[in-house]
Design a binder for these strands. Structure first.
Lengths: 230, 230
DNA sequence: GCAAAAGTGTTGAAGCTACACCCATGA
DNA sequence: TCATGGGTGTAGCTTCAACACTTTTGC
């Protein structure tokens, strides 16, 4: 009976997204079989003593030289179809990371090359394993997070302007937001973003106030919670 | 090198929640070691040919006699600490299910007994494995889903009244909502709930219109998406 | 000065909260 | 008839969308 229980290996795949002109994803070209030469989502095996979240943090760090721990890493799903990997039973936890300013991509491990690709384009490409599904789910999740949480700030550098934040929303959703109204909206949601007191003119025009991420994690719901009482 | 990659067994744990007077969770008392005699979240091993979601569906079905497929099953997390199970490396995917009307709990498998417990009370109890953490995360997730998605209807039977839906929110959040305003709110969100044309007097008073769940999955965000264009 | 981006003011429409009030049933 | 919960009306307030307009920089 106990022998019938599948023994599996675990991998963490990390869908690394950033916002430039469009929403882009970091992919690696596989340097060895299976799917040698194909594009894939960066990931790797869980190592002894690790849990899978730590694996994801490590992968993010290896691919981007970013401190994975400090960045937004959100679980997307767990992919466990028995035949998803030709090498045998390999289950994968998929995370999505939203990072600012694409840093230089760093090839390493079994990746012959890493590259940024617009997600539109990546979703039309053939990817290794079930990575097209994973990428699709991850992008869905990222869009949803923009709706509901303060995750958009993860796409901005540590200090950012309201306009830079607005451009994140505009890019991920496609469309334009009224700058004035957006400014009032986000500055009025308590704990969303906090002024640093500094300003910048890096976007041209009148100096813009710089902000950092606030403590709030979730945007206010559309059905407001009642006052706690019970 | 390849031998260093841990081989693990996979289990699916299903946190089954329902709303009665309070938010309650279905727990099983373990009938064999490890943690024999302790309360635990129902779950079981992934079987050959299954993926882990199917395992979760099967577990829900075994514990509640409900068609697991038809019910709301939401991934909560993946629990992979190397020492979370004394039997060895066992990783667990945790789901949360929100079901109506507690049906009769059905002991089966390695569960000597199953019982409903108020969540507050369960969170104060010692549970097997890391199940206190899992339960905590699952309840958080359920609360969040009420904010952001239409998941509240999963706590209602197939046909329900607006008041029954309101009581779900009131119970999960603790507090009172204005009946009139709540009624207008949910009936005006398109696709949230749909009238059946039938009525009921099961809650007393004037007959109440019966509704079913609509097609909408997510409630409107507080920062409205711009019109798509790009 | 001119262009560009930041941020504020304004106005009419829409939505929300609180609460009164009527409705339709069972007892 | 009364009690109970269902549902609508309404007044006052807040928020919102659209867009004009002022501010502060770089060139």
């Amino acid at each position: 009976m106990r022998d019938l229980i599948p023994l599996v290996q675990l991998t963490a795949d990390v869908v690394i997204l950033t916002v430039r002109q469009e929403l882009e994803v970091l992919l690696v070209r596989r340097g060895k079989p299976p799917f040698e030469g194909m594009l894939a989502i960066p990931g790797g095996y869980m190592e002894p003593g690790e849990n899978l979240w730590q694996t994801a943090v490590r992968e993010l760090q290896e691919e981007t030289s970013l401190d994975g721990m400090a960045h937004h890493l959100e679980l997307v799903g767990i992919y466990t179809d028995p035949d998803r990997d030709p090498r045998g039973q390999v289950a994968s936890g998929a995370w999505v990371a939203m990072i600012p300013d694409p840093p230089v991509a760093r090839p390493g491990g079994d990746a012959a090359a890493t590259q940024w690709l617009p997600v539109e384009q990546a979703l039309e490409s053939a990817l290794a394993f079930d990575h097209r599904v994973i990428l699709h789910d991850a992008v869905e999740r990222a869009r949803r997070s923009l709706d509901q949480s303060t995750a958009a700030v993860s796409f901005c550098r540590k200090e950012f302007t309201v306009s830079e934040l607005r451009r994140v929303y505009e890019t991920v959703w496609g469309g334009k937001l009224d700058p004035g109204n957006f400014h009032r909206k986000v500055t009025r949601i308590e704990g969303f973003i906090e002024r640093t007191g500094r300003t910048t003119t890096r976007d041209g025009g009148r100096p813009a106030a710089l902000y950092t991420a606030g403590a709030r994690k979730w945007l206010p719901p559309s059905i407001p919670r009642p006052e706690m009482s019970a």
